[in-house]
Design a protein around this nucleic acid. Structure first.
Lengths: 186, 186
DNA sequence: GTCTATATATAGATAGAC
DNA sequence: GTCTATCTATATATAGAC
């Protein structure tokens, strides 16, 4: 893996763990064994690094969409949830939520890329829900986009709340399972 | 209003707008017309200020609970939603979500107070939902606490997503209205 | 209770050698 | 592509005068 890729991956981890404005080039440099000046060679500014992280997120999303395109709607829904599945265990929140709370404190370039990534995720979930309705697997009556926003919001929020409560209560899994149950209910 | 109260109120606003680690004592000092050293007289450390903000949030929550204790369950539910109602318009996210994403970058004292405040909010919503079931106004079958976490998560998340999408689409209101509709549905 | 002045630390960023 | 060295800005925090 190239140094550039290592930096992006570690930056992603740190954003999800601590937030964009709480990690520093020094955190990254110390972990991967280089100096902060070397990071600036790959990413002139921290905003450039933020943009690169979001572009990588988009690429990963496209790959995930492609990998399940021939599968059933329930497999696609599970792929959507896989964005969030491992976060609580790793003491992380999702990229969108982490950057959204810092929105007014990040560079406009990062803001723009974040909005685009969030739109992609929302549109993907909307498409999945629509397909489920068409196939008579899901039976909600709410407008599909609204339902998608509601479900995505639940995921964004529950990984954050999970951090604050006793981890014996696996609210993340309970909420996720309940969402699937409600989607299937007639 | 005392200087101390002014500092707490402004800190609350800044946390919801930019995040705890993105505002500085200088931001507060400049706005209310004092020097940063004066803030340290009231709050020795930034963590102390964070704790004070959360204690004020708890006090406000208790007052809200008391103000609706003799009203109907739908009025209580609306009081719960009032925590979030004005946030999108003011370009803010909620206190719990803002601090949860920064959880690993804030002082343990602030972490602890945040967890307590989140527990209070969740327990309040759980009580409201339970009362609604008892009075046959709500008809969900999911365990009440899980339903409360799911709804609270939706609110935490939707005020964050609302920041990222076209504000012409008032997803916050649509999601909130849909949650109420689903609670009442048989 | 607020001020001036300052200490101390750390951040992002740049210049130029290798 | 990474380094050393340095710049500049800003953060939290403290000491002591008023």
């Amino acid at each position: 893996m190239s140094t550039r890729e290592s930096i992006i991956l570690l930056a992603e981890k740190l954003v999800k763990e601590k937030g964009f404005n709480a990690f520093s080039f020094h955190d990254i440099a110390a972990t991967i064994g280089i100096k902060t000046a070397s990071i600036h060679y790959h990413f002139p500014t921290k905003a450039d690094l933020g943009v690169a992280v979001l572009e990588q997120q988009k690429t990963r999303l496209y790959q995930m969409q492609e990998s399940v395109q021939d599968k059933g709607v329930l497999a696609k829904l599970e792929a959507f949830f896989s964005i969030y599945n491992n976060l609580p265990r790793e003491n992380m929140v999702c990229m969108v939520g982490s950057l959204a709370t810092d929105f007014n404190a990040i560079d406009p370039k990062v803001q723009e890329n974040l909005s685009e990534f969030a739109d992609l995720v929302l549109q993907w979930l909307t498409d999945i829900l629509q397909e489920g309705k068409r196939e008579n697997i899901f039976h909600f009556t709410t407008p599909t986009k609204v339902k998608a926003v509601q479900i995505a919001s639940s995921m964004v929020g529950v990984v954050q709340l999970q951090r604050l409560v006793n981890e014996d209560d696996n609210f993340f899994k309970k909420v996720k399972d309940n969402i699937i149950k409600e989607l299937k209910a007639k």
